[in-house]
Amino acid sequence: MNTWIRVIILNLFFAGLSVAALAQPDGMARIEGGTFMPFYSSTEDSITVDPFYLDKFAVTNAEFLEFVKANPEWRRSNVKSVFAEDGYLKHWAGDLDLGSDAEKIKNSPVTNVSWFAARAYAQWRGKRLPTLYEWEYVASASHDKPLASRDKEFVQKVLDWYSRPNPETLPRVGQGKPNVHGVYDMHGLIWEWVQDFNTVFISGESRGDQGELKQFYCAAGSSAASETDKENYAAFLRFAFRGSLEADYSVGNLGFRCAKDNQ
């Protein structure tokens, strides 16, 4: 009888452990839900984000190498051109070769990956790409505030990065301070793909020209005096960048990180 109880207790213990493991997927931060204001919105339409998990770090070259090893169809020489343009992984020396700088770049974020490739990687990991709103919500946090878009210092840092040219090789991930969610490098390292990047309207199409688009331009074009406008400008740049992308583009400073539903 006693042994049975022990077995049951042990089982409960391990069940508990695995639940804990499920609750906090490896290398991911739990993002508590919340509400934020996209830069173009008026006070009435704040956006609510449900709880989810987000990778603490952008996906690195070494991690992406594992993916292409396991999925030959995503190697540079095999990839279908409809899913990735010519520059796909062009900073690597070969299909499975990071090149002479391998040591230097293995922990740097992978870039030159198309949206299709990023999405396939996420699916292979049992994850998905974050939505635009999820990404923007986490990106609006500073190291000590969940919503720092009105924080002068934070806003200035983001803008400073936007105006700096790219370094020759990207630094490794996770060097700075994490933000309040425990997530690193939302600003200052690379631009990142989001799942629904193609929901951003930038050219005159459909009814967008009447509503959203006008708000975009007004937000960005208003006099650049106050901090609010500056923050708007930083977010406007991100939205403008996304709006300029096609899903097969491979860009030298555009990478990604993965997200996961809260279950």
Partner: peptide, 30 residues
Amino acid sequence: RPLVIAILAMAIMFGACSGNDGEREQQSKK
């Protein structure tokens, strides 16, 4: 005005952030 701002924004993006020489080339190749 909005158009000019958009074009400026793009110019900043590709000038300052991308430093990605291949981009335009790739486009035309495509």
